[in-house]
Design a protein around this nucleic acid. Structure first.
Length: 894
RNA sequence: GCGGCGGUGGCGGAAUGGUAGACGCGGAGGCCUCAAAAGCCUCUGUCCGCAAGGGCGUGUGGGUUCGACUCCCACCCGCCGCACCA
């Protein structure tokens, strides 16, 4: 017995050095797919290139366990695709602008660039130690001028296309971070998503991107992509498309038309009042000089400043103030009173609504509070316990009543279209669609971000920085703390510039961009990362885009994924790429928890990847994180579970070591390092696919790829039982065959599991194979063992690359990553006999061996003959017999 | 409230409508050893039984089916997202 032990600390760096020295995972653009040896074989490799991408990390401190998980998942996929014969683009970068580095700078005075670079170095080191197969030649960081130069270029492209604009707006302002927030960065409770401070409202000039122009396409194209349904649903909800009508209500006294959006034009006859949002610009104008002015003013200022917590809660009592004016209901000429109330939002629709208390819960509550009339215009009653004695408010369908002879009696859905048609013909309204999605506010009053390439000139206004002057470099400043304006404003020398148009004095924009802008296009840059003439060459993008498999956390289901889709569509419209969608398929991985809770420093339950890798090796850490459970679900970390995986990898190594000893070969030398001679792509096995490369010194192994002769099914199968079916003297060969079959079973199982991201069951299958190797190692030939173990190593390579490469080399002398993915031999998957399940009344009563080709009659007879079946059937009447060949026989008795 | 996901041994989890609990952890017993570590072997849902075998078991209650963790209906619980969006 060998005294050598599995030592990841020795094995892992050695293979990492090979991959680094030989630049194994680099792919060139414009590669010749013909260089791939195998490939045409199998439906899976019809696409010759593949772009596998995990969401880029935000480099802060050290990588955490979540990073280990995403990159373990992504790397498994990347390896699998490669071994199917595809050229795989698998790059890495850093989303390196952002608030945490800046906040750290405010606290410590350390330049964000310094802390960010330090963190990036730590990420780089650990990714290498994990053995992730990254094409390092394409590495990027969004804070580097060579990257953000093009972020600025994209901004100018959008500006040019009218997709970026500047406007003064009531914006969400975080008083603690001293910056504007996007709507998406405000929690439902009205607090800053990042720091938790209560968000305020301010009026500021801000840059917006017109994502709402793309609402319809962002919604429709979700159908085209292979994303988890729940992510698509979240995006659909976020876009929030509503069909309805825009209807004009006229204030006769002032001669102003007020359009409103409604999804229920069928209830127009039930409108008994009209409500405007406090932010509506006309509210104060409507009451100016009237006795209502004071009261309205107070209400409006209160509503606007108190927005966060007090507003937004549907359960709180409705408040509002009458404006003392009326508008005309266009369908019946009725004068209805106008109100201002905070339950109406300025950002949605037109900032004003028609109120139909009989058929809308919110309007009903308001009408009740203010003693306004409630009118029924649709027949039907609210569900038990939710309405008043008249069954109102009723929000369901039904025939129209009390509306107009023309529409009364008509089903409300039908009436809806009829009324819209009528409005349209009268010029009082038209069909309309509204979205919940808002334009994307990208201005941030912060230092550590991409400068917005705009200068302000007294004469020319906002002028884009000419393309040849990009990048607008981020200057160094002394003080990072925002004081109500961007820290950049203090860099006076940088701010002062000349106007590109007139040459006069001008000042630079001092806001920086939301970091989501940086990460909305990085996947494009990877394709052509070294290009210093353009953001990318569209021809190169055609080769790689869209990303075939994107992998990341669900927390980005809305923002990042929506913005990236928007950028892709906008840039495609501008002719810079062909793809309409950036990510063909998406996989969202679940969180790793510890003791059922999210890992956090304050809880003190953080498991650090570095310490695990140090102790057990990267293979164990990666393999365990994939074995722990379905990767799209949350999973709880357990140190004991990891020990189990470590034992498994040790056993693989030990058995491989043992077998390589047994075959009497000279000990294998460490793999040659430093040779750039062969690229792995060129070294793929012969077409047609022998499962593994021949070993260096013996050819017996190769013969096993063709299975040894399969014993015949015993004659008279119907009558045989397990004991006598194995031919005499074939015992040994039987075990060899069993192990070979198990190997092919594992190939089939792991291949299928990889396609569906079921890494946990894939690893379990390799464990089963290895258990058989271990159990049968005294009974089978060395060649059989070697084949089975090499298969195990080959299948495990995507999850535990170092030990798999090591074991494979010990066994075969070849490099596992240069081998095509093994293919299961159909014949080896088929068996001559199987265990027939015998049921009586659907309950398992016995199992007997049956020949695969036994007829239903034979199977029935087998089942009847089974002793325990007889015991349950005797003396009873057989009502029915179900025979499922290959599975079972079920006898139904009475 | 709306939408989505989930509920299976002591634990993590397996199961194209066809043997529930693969694989791993934990536990029990044994082998090896002077002893230990490591490794190896056997058992391990639960109840009855010496055993053979049987009863009960996938959140709850119904249903479809020869047969349901799986499909349908109605609930309960947990998690996630959205939420005064007219």
């Amino acid at each position: 017995m060998s005294e050598r032990r599995y030592d990841p600390r020795e094995i892992e760096p050695r293979w990492q050095a090979v991959w680094a020295d030989e630049r194994t995972w680099e792919v060139a653009n414009e590669g010749a797919p013909a260089a791939v040896g195998r490939g045409a074989s199998g439906a899976e490799s019809e696409r010759m290139s593949s772009y596998v991408l995990e969401m880029l990390p935000y480099p802060s401190g050290e990588p955490h366990i979540g990073h280990l998980k995403v990159y373990s998942v992504g790397d498994a996929i990347a390896h699998y695709h490669r071994r199917l014969g595809r050229r795989v683009l698998h790059p890495m970068g850093y989303d390196s602008f952002g608030l945490p580095a800046e906040n750290h700078a405010i606290k410590t005075g350390v330049h964000p660039r310094a802390s960010t670079d330090a963190s990036i170095a730590s990420f780089q080191r650990q990714f290498r130690e994990w053995g992730i197969s990254i094409d390092w030649s394409r590495e990027l960081a969004t804070h580097e001028p060579s990257y953000y130069r093009w972020t600025q270029w994209i901004f100018l492209q959008l500006l040019d296309a009218g997709l970026a604009y500047r406007k003064e707006a009531a914006v969400k302002w975080c008083p603690k971070d001293q910056t504007v927030l996007a709507n998406e960065q405000v929690s439902p409770e009205g607090t800053c998503e990042r720091c938790g401070a209560r968000v305020e409202v301010r009026q500021l000039e801000q840059w917006f991107l017109r994502i709402t122009d793309y609402a319809e396409r962002l919604l429709n194209d979700l159908q085209e992509i292979d994303w988890p349904e729940h992510v698509k649903t979240m995006q659909r909800n976020w876009i929030g498309r509503s069909e309805g009508a825009e209807v004009t209500f006229r204030c006769e006294e002032l001669g102003i038309d007020y359009p409103v959006f409604t999804t229920r034009p069928d209830t127009l006859f039930g409108a008994t009042f009209f409500v405007m949002a406090p932010e509506h610009p006309d509210v104060l104008r409507l009451v100016a000089g009237t006795e209502r002015e004071q009261e309205v003013r107070e209400y409006v200022s209160h509503a606007i400043t108190a927005s966060g917590e007090e507003r937004g809660n549907a359960d709180k009592p409705k408040t509002g103030v009458a404006l003392g004016r009326t508008v005309t209901n266009p369908v019946n000429g009725e004068q209805i009173p106008m109100y201002v109330a905070d339950y109406v939002l300025m950002e949605y629709g037109t900032g004003a609504i028609m109120a139909v208390p009989g058929h809308d819960e919110r309007d009903y509550a308001f009408a009740r509070a203010f003693g306004l009339p409630i009118r029924r215009v649709i027949e039907g009653a609210a569900p038990q316990g939710s309405g008043d004695e008249h069954g109102l408010p009723y929000t369901g369908d039904g025939p129209l009543v009390g509306s107009n002879p023309e529409f009364d009696g008509m089903g409300n859905r039908e009436a809806l279209s009829a009324i819209v048609r009528w409005l349209d013909s009268e010029g009082k309204g038209h069909a309309s669609v509204n979205y919940r999605l808002r334009d994307w506010l990208i201005s941030r009053q912060r230092y550590w971000g991409c400068p917005i390439p705009i200068v302000y000139c007294e004469d020319c206004g906002a002028v884009p920085v000419p393309e040849q002057d990009l990048p607008v470099r981020l200057p160094d400043v002394e003080d990072y703390a925002p004081r109500g304006r961007s820290p950049l404003a203090a860099a006076e020398e940088w701010v002062r510039t000349s106007c590109p148009e007139c040459g006069g004095d001008a000042r630079r924009e001092t806001d920086t961009m939301d970091t989501f802008v940086d990460s909305s296009w990085y996947f494009l840059r990877y394709c052509d990362a070294a290009n210093d003439q353009a953001a990318w060459d569209p021809a190169v993008l055609r080769e790689w885009m869209p990303v075939d498999q994107y992998i990341g956390g669900v927390e980005h289901a809305i923002l990042h994924l929506m913005y990236a889709r928007f950028f892709t569509k906008a840039l495609a419209d501008l002719g810079h790429l062909d793809a309409q969608e950036p990510f063909r398929a998406l996989f969202t991985q679940g969180m790793i928890t510890k003791d059922g809770a999210k890992m956090s420093k304050s809880r003190g339950n953080v498991v650090s990847p570095a310490s695990i890798v140090e102790r057990y090796g990267a293979d164990t850490a990666r393999c365990y994180i994939l074995f722990i459970g379905p990767p799209d679900q949350d999973a709880d970390w357990s140190d004991e579970g990891m020990e189990g995986v470590h034992r498994f990898l040790s056993r693989l190594w030990r058995l491989a070591d043992e077998v390589s000893d047994k075959s009497g070969e000279e000990p294998h030398a460490a793999p040659p390092a430093g040779s750039h001679a062969t690229l792995p792509r060129a070294a793929h096995g012969p077409p047609g696919g022998v499962a593994h490369a021949p070993p260096r010194t013996t050819s017996a192994f190769q013969e096993h790829a063709d299975p040894p002769s399969v014993p015949h099914a015993p004659t008279g199968a119907a009558g045989t039982s397990a004991a006598d079916e194995v031919p005499r003297g074939k015992r040994l060969e039987g075990d060899d065959l069993k192990l070979l079959r198990k190997s092919h079973w594992a190939i089939d199982k792991v291949s299928g599991d990889l396609r569906r991201f079921a890494f946990n069951t894939a690893i379990a299958a390799v464990m089963e194979l290895l258990n058989d190797c271990s159990r049968l190692r005294e009974e089978v030939s060395v060649d059989s063992q070697r084949f089975a173990l090499a298969t195990a190593a080959s299948l495990l390579f995507p999850f535990a690359p170092h030990v798999s490469a090591e074991a494979y080399e010990l066994l075969t002398g070849a490099r596992v990553w240069e081998q095509p993915w093994p293919r299961a031999d159909e014949e080896m998957l088929e068996r001559d006999t199987y265990e027939l399940v015998c049921q009586v009344n659907g309950r398992l009563r016995d199992r007997v061996q049956a020949a695969v080709d036994a007829s239903p009659d034979e199977l029935r007879a087998l089942c009847h003959a089974a002793p325990n079946v007889r015991a349950h059937v005797d003396g009873k009447e057989i009502v029915k017999e179900i025979v499922v060949p290959g599975k079972l026989v079920n006898l139904v008795v009475k």
